[in-house]
């Protein structure tokens, strides 16, 4: 297993946002995480990426206990993520965002940069451009991240996460605010990434996207895991239908 959580718990005041969650995600899997708003999905992700400290339980990543590590340490070990509320470096260019994303993969060129007229970052820039081509932002490399359209910002955030060549990629509602065309392109990209062997955790409201892209899905409700299994099984589960899909059906 690449990522395992056991009994993972987080409380906010009296509310148990994440309640004794056990997950086991195999290397190369595309794992979906669904549930109604406020079910604790994002809190769970924040625990795994180190942005929140767990009150109980443990997280193992690549056979090591990572429960108490900081986000930057986890990034170094190969966990990359995007944010539900896009968190790009808005005042930096699209290209610079990707370059920062390559931080864990590039050697510090602080000293090399002191040599006059030398462009120490050149090879990294080439790589970043290729990545931007891939997500369809090649032409916007010089624009400011803050100037991009919403869907483009989501794609840039994915490109930034991919720049780190992660072992585990966590996507927090990547299709939110995307139109159907963009969403379809995203589904295609997820398939490609999965084929390359990147393990993906996908949080998403777009049921079609989740059911189409994921091999395994876990459902959260009120901080608890109420079901887990292959998409078809989940869609048939009565508890899930009641808690989540039923609501979606009505809508």
């Amino acid at each position: 297993m690449l990522l395992e959580t056991s009994g993972l718990t987080k409380r906010f005041g009296g509310v148990v946002a994440v309640n004794a969650i056990d997950l086991a995600i195999a290397e190369g899997q595309v794992f979906g995480l669904i549930g109604p708003n406020g079910a604790g999905k994002t809190t769970l992700i924040n625990l795994i990426s180190g942005h929140l400290r767990a009150d109980g339980g443990a997280i193992r990543f690549a056979d090591a206990d990572v429960t108490r590590l900081r986000p930057d340490q986890l990034a170094r070990r190969g966990i990359a993520r995007t944010f539900q509320s896009i968190r790009l470096f808005k005042g930096l260019t699209v290209l610079e965002n990707v370059l920062v994303g390559r931080y864990v993969r590039s050697r510090s060129d602080a000293l090399a940069s002191l040599v006059p007229f030398r462009d120490a970052a050149r090879p990294e820039r080439e790589r970043a451009r290729l990545l931007l081509e891939r997500v369809g932002l090649g032409k916007r490399a010089g624009a400011f991240a803050g100037e991009l359209a919403y869907g483009d910002q989501r794609r840039l955030e994915i490109a930034r996460a991919l720049a780190a060549e992660p072992r585990l990629l966590i996507l927090d509602e990547p299709a939110a605010g995307m139109n159907p065309t963009e969403s379809a392109a995203l589904r295609e990209m997820l398939r490609e990434l999965a084929a390359e062997g990147i393990t993906i955790v996908l949080i998403e409201h777009d049921v079609r996207l989740v059911m189409g892209a994921c091999e395994r899905v876990a459902v959260l409700n009120f901080g608890r895991k109420i079901a887990e299994g292959p998409p078809a099984e989940i869609q048939a589960d009565p508890a899930v239908r009641e808690a989540y899909l039923g609501v979606a059906d009505d809508a």
Binding site: R70, F89, L92, Y103, R107, A164
Partner: peptide, 26 residues
């Protein structure tokens, strides 16, 4: 020169969004 190096980019990233910067491994 530091400003345009990895270090300067990391500084700029921290200025723009500290939490996101940490997520990039900084």
């Amino acid at each position: 020169r530091l400003r345009i190096s990895t270090v300067g980019r990391a500084w700029a990233a921290i200025r723009e969004d500290e939490l996101a910067a940490a997520s990039q491994g900084i």
